[in-house]
Design a binder for these strands. Structure first.
Lengths: 204, 204
DNA sequence: GTCTATACACCGATAGAC
DNA sequence: GTCTATCGGTGTATAGAC
């Protein structure tokens, strides 16, 4: 009686192939656009035929779903990295959080579309992949509460403001900074509205 | 020698059919979603076959394009209607403008997707159809300038804020009012930031 | 002149041989 | 597990019926 091996080489191999598929999918999405991703294209780049992908993912949407989960999970890691640097000043911390999310969104159009827009017809993230997105939001909510922003409506206002700036930047000035350079001002506007300490800069 | 008739019955008929196609396309988009629109479906509902539509529109995207133009042109009419009611109070006028645009966007999901999002892969509005959208923006810019908001960045901030609220409402609480009820507060926040007269309501 | 039938290339997905 | 073959769907091009 030899018992079960510690490592399951088969599932390890399976996982490696899944990762390879996802990596290739991201690559194509960045090159050609998220919607232009095709199974035949993904398969060809890794030396397979399209139907073989169904051994690793149940459908094309399942691939999108895994990508969605990856994108949000990776952003959780980004949040972990910046958390220690969050200043004691509420405004500075708000600005860092906003800037970090803004930059992550703007850095990869395809990823941003998948994470924050409904650009793939019929795609709805599974609860499993949605979980990290919820956690990002929840961490943001907690962090803002810590900074003195406890009102639920205020948090909704903050996310809408941030999302609006990201969207405007991506849609109307991709690659530029027309809305990016308004980000700090927007956060100050929000902070002023809530009466957070420090700064009172206004426009003429 | 009879000269050219005053009315061109042929182009009249052609125009009528074009309108019928667009009307049907809107109907399907509202029923099934903008992306689920198919030429075969449109054609079937008006008693045609799909290829026949090519006598009236050069492509499917040309249909989307015409719809895009219609949506923005109709909003111009909405602006005409509310313009006389715009109060002398800058804040009240801002709120009316914001609320009007918000309601128009939220009233028809498919229309909003077409007007304000890039949800159709590969669709880019033609200059011709883009014109009314530009005019809406330009009128908004002029109106805000009249109210004392002359800074270009401030106008960009306003559009981003408004767009963010609309987007959040549609994406996260369709049919509800979680972000709709923040609209007046958001406008006040913006107005406060710019130092516009009247009101100073704050959150705790 | 309008509309249709046909066809093409491409897509996601499935069935079954190996 | 990967393949070939195929299905039903799409947008679209074109030849020709009436």
């Amino acid at each position: 009686m030899l018992g079960k091996p510690v490592r399951d080489r088969k599932t390890e191999r399976q996982q490696a192939t899944r990762s390879e598929i996802l990596e290739t999918a991201w690559e194509i999405a960045r090159e050609k656009g998220l919607a232009e991703l095709t199974l035949r294209d993904v398969a060809a780049r890794i030396g397979m035929r399209a139907p073989s992908l169904y051994s690793y993912f149940a459908s094309k949407n399942a691939i999108y779903d895994a990508m969605y989960g990856q994108a949000w999970t990776r952003y959780l890691a980004v949040m972990d990295a910046i958390e220690p640097t969050l200043s004691r000043s509420p405004r500075a911390a708000l600005k860092t959080m906003a800037r970090t999310f803004f930059d992550y969104a703007v850095a990869d159009l395809a990823r941003h579309q998948l994470m924050n827009q409904r650009t793939i017809p019929g795609f709805v993230p599974s609860p499993e992949s949605y979980a990290p997105a919820v956690e990002v939001l929840e961490r943001g909510r907690v962090e803002l509460a810590r900074l003195g922003v406890q009102d639920a409506g205020a948090f909704d206002l903050f996310t809408a403001l941030l999302g609006g700036l990201i969207n405007a930047q991506q849609a109307n000035d991709p690659g530029g900074d027309r809305w990016a350079r308004l980000l700090d001002e927007a956060v100050d506007m929000f902070a002023d509205h809530l009466g957070l300490p420090e700064s009172t800069r206004r426009r003429a």
